[in-house]
Design a protein around this nucleic acid. Structure first.
Lengths: 212, 212
DNA sequence: ACATACATGTAATGCGTTACATGATTAC
DNA sequence: GTAATCATGTAACGCATTACATGTATGT
């Protein structure tokens, strides 16, 4: 039920259409939760039929735009969900799973996988860091909308937790980058020991990082 | 298609039954990839019908035990999957999503969520660290089985990459622990500023960690 | 005219969770 | 005898991915 909450949460900042939500998930918020529009539109319809949100249908010529706003029942549901404990269902990470099978691959293939991981999280890091800066400098349009409809006494709390969320993403990206670099070191070390004909190397450098 | 690969990968260490695989996912390997037995058994049957694995049916009295072993086609499929690039589909993390909605909650509720996060990853950290030690000291039964059926020249590579995978998990757990601690700091800071009637605090301490 | 952005949907297929369901063997 | 462990399944429901499908408004 997390997608519902993600959408509800965004709609509490400001009434929006499914298209708007899709764009936000693609651009900024999507680095916390993603969904394609094929999931967004039916979910909005469903929440509307349950009385959590309500659509204001705007027409520009022959084009329809359904702008949803959160009803009291929606706020209650969101608060209930936010307060309930997170259910930590098992880990599922394709990159780490793949890493656990790298002995099947050539060192070139292993290197390519770690490099791709490094590049992916370097890009994410830039995006997340820019989000943190946008919040700190008051440039985030969603946050600005949210502040407008919030009691000034609550502003510090709102900003502090928004920052905290993105900082968590920044920390995670840094950790994935460090892991990919460690993986590349491991590959380099295996490559050196293969060249020198020593079959018992590489474990030394691999072991160091864990106790750092 | 990751579950198939996870199961295939484990079966390359040693022929096993669905029950064995379920236990391993619950105990050790599950901290890389999880699945309930309701997913495992049908997946094994399907892979059998596709000729990737083959069952050796053992009977103890009236009890049936289907021990699967990987066929050549299964090895090929696994190697193909392992070598293809990871597809990074968008982020989806309930804990971070919830954190982004904490302004809806009381500071007590926020604290409870961060504490739960901290406890969860502290437990995971212990498990993953013990896995790293099990591999380094040669205590892992799955790794021992795998080494038996592997060319000694490849032992260093096998051990190095297994370590690397679990080290990645250790690093991630540390990062989540650090984030939860940062969240608790944020809560404490907001609590202090609420008591002293200052409505503009907390952002200072929250901002520091990003540039550390 | 043509491309791009706006705007909203459906359908098929597969993955994941929870609950239901059954029965044999072993240890106490 | 009874509880735990061994052992294997099915079913219902919801979430996620990809592809298919349609049409308007705007800028060049």
């Amino acid at each position: 039920m997390s997608l519902r909450s993600a959408l509800l949460g965004l709609l509490t900042a400001e009434p929006m259409s499914g298209y708007d939500l899709d764009r936000i998930l693609d651009e900024t918020f999507g680095y916390v939760w993603t969904a394609p529009h094929s999931q967004i539109y039916p979910t909005l319809r469903q929440m509307e039929s349950e009385g959590l949100i309500e659509a204001d249908v705007q027409r520009t010529g022959g084009r329809e735009r359904r702008v949803y706003r959160v009803l009291d029942k929606g706020y209650d549901e969101l608060r209930r969900w936010a307060g309930e404990p997170v259910s930590y269902t098992g880990e599922r990470d394709t990159a780490h799973l793949k890493a656990s099978m790298m002995h099947l691959l050539s060192l070139e293939q292993c290197e390519a996988i770690f490099r791709a991981h490094l590049n992916y999280y370097r890009q994410r890091l830039l995006i997340w860091e820019s989000r943190v800066e946008a919040i700190q400098s008051g440039q985030s349009p969603i946050l600005k909308a949210r502040l407008r409809s919030t009691d000034p006494d609550e502003h510090a709390k709102l900003i502090a937790f928004k920052l905290c969320g993105y900082e968590g993403s920044v920390m995670r990206a840094r950790s994935e980058i460090a892991w990919a670099e460690h993986g590349l070191d491991t590959v380099a070390s295996l490559r050196r020991s293969a060249e020198s004909g020593d079959s018992s190397a590489a474990t030394g450098s691999a072991a160091t990082i864990v106790h750092s």
